[in-house]
């Protein structure tokens, strides 16, 4: 299913110069060049109002770009909506349900809307999807009576009615409690393990760090950076806790650690940037011990995506205007 073919290309999503200016004049997305590799779990990160939902609306053919082009599963959107979207599951800006229908009837209706969905297997596919998101027990309840978390799950179930090549999830953990968030994340990992490409938007940095292999960072409608997650969060800082800070600084400096600073019993320094030249971490520790430094704590603190975001934009991770 997730097999990349020459015909469809290696990107599940690619855009060039994608731009949307709303009728009010608001430039919501500005010259976006996005490349989402097939098979990746791609985090689309940005504060509220940075243009994530607008981008997703354009990718799903709900709104027309002001300029630029988008390809989903190798085909141009919105022209190929009919052949592309049956292979895509989407959760856009939260779930939307028929409150007067049961959860199960909601899914039956959304499935009936897809002309390529086999009516004979509809019932079993709906039940499987309900099972998968843990809603089987509440399937007969009116959707009006669902909690926000249950609505979110039902929305996810609608996206999982058929095996999909691509899942587009716009802030799927919004409104969920920590337990619900964990469950969604493990579901995303499970789907990704099956070979489904997952495009996941979020304003939560740690969420992206926890589940994504790749990420793109948006700010005020513009793409700041994109790539594998490890490449985005810069190389980590070495942290040593010791009652002999001066001696520790001397030893580490000899080993090529830069930017060393001692603060009480805490010594920090930057590891060499080039990963190839990076020696085994334990060697630093061995060298310290050999020099008679009493090491109480030793480790690497990864710079978070948030640090990366601040470094890239020069601003905090706040709501854009």
């Amino acid at each position: 299913m997730g097999e990349p073919s020459a015909q469809t290309g290696e990107h599940a999503i690619s855009t060039s110069g994608l731009t949307k200016r709303y009728r009010g004049g608001q430039l919501a997305v500005d010259g976006l060049d996005l490349a989402v590799p097939r098979g990746s779990v791609f985090g689309f990160l940005g504060p509220n109002g940075s243009g994530k939902t607008t981008t997703i609306r354009m990718l799903m053919g709900l709104i027309a770009p002001t300029s630029g082009a988008a390809r989903v599963l190798g085909e141009p959107m919105p022209r190929a909506v009919r052949s592309v979207l049956p292979r895509v599951g989407a959760l856009i800006e939260g779930p939307a349900l028929y409150g007067f229908l049961s959860g199960r009837d909601n899914l039956l209706r959304f499935d009936a809307a897809d002309p390529t969905a086999e009516p004979r297997t509809r019932g079993t596919r709906v039940d499987t999807a309900l099972e998968r998101v843990g809603l089987a027990a509440a399937a007969g309840k009116k959707a009006r009576a669902y909690s926000l978390g249950m609505k979110q799950r039902l929305g996810l179930a609608a996206a999982l009615l058929r095996p999909r090549e691509l899942l587009v999830l716009d802030e799927p953990t919004n409104g969920l409690d920590p337990q619900g968030m964990r469950e969604i994340r493990s579901l995303v990992r499970e789907l990704a393990a099956d070979g489904t490409t997952v495009f996941l938007s979020s304003h939560l940095l740690d969420e992206i760090e926890q589940v994504c292999t790749h990420a793109a960072v948006m700010s005020r409608g513009r793409l700041i950076t994109q790539g594998p997650v490890e490449a985005l969060s810069s190389a980590g800082r070495l942290v040593v806790t010791t009652p002999d800070p001066a001696e520790a600084v001397r030893v580490l400096k000899e080993r090529g650690v830069t930017g060393l600073a001692a603060d009480g019993d805490r010594v920090t320094g930057e590891l060499p940037q080039d990963p190839a030249a990076l020696p085994e971490l334990a060697d630093f520790n061995a060298a310290l011990v050999a020099a008679g430094v009493r090491v109480r704590g030793f480790g690497v603190e990864r710079a978070s995506l948030e640090d990366a975001f601040v470094a890239l934009t020069g601003e905090g991770f706040d709501v854009a205007g």
């Binding site: 799903m60 053919g61 709900l62 909506v81 009919r82 979207l85 049956p86 895509v88 989407a90 856009i92 800006e93 939260g94 939307a96 349900l97 028929y98 409150g99 959304f110 499935d111 809307a113 897809d114 002309p115 929305g155 609608a158």
Partner: peptide
């Protein structure tokens, strides 16, 4: 108004 229209369209209802 209910938002269900966008889910019908991405189903895709056409």
């Amino acid at each position: 108004n209910a938002g269900t229209l966008r889910y019908l369209l991405v189903a895709p209802a056409g």
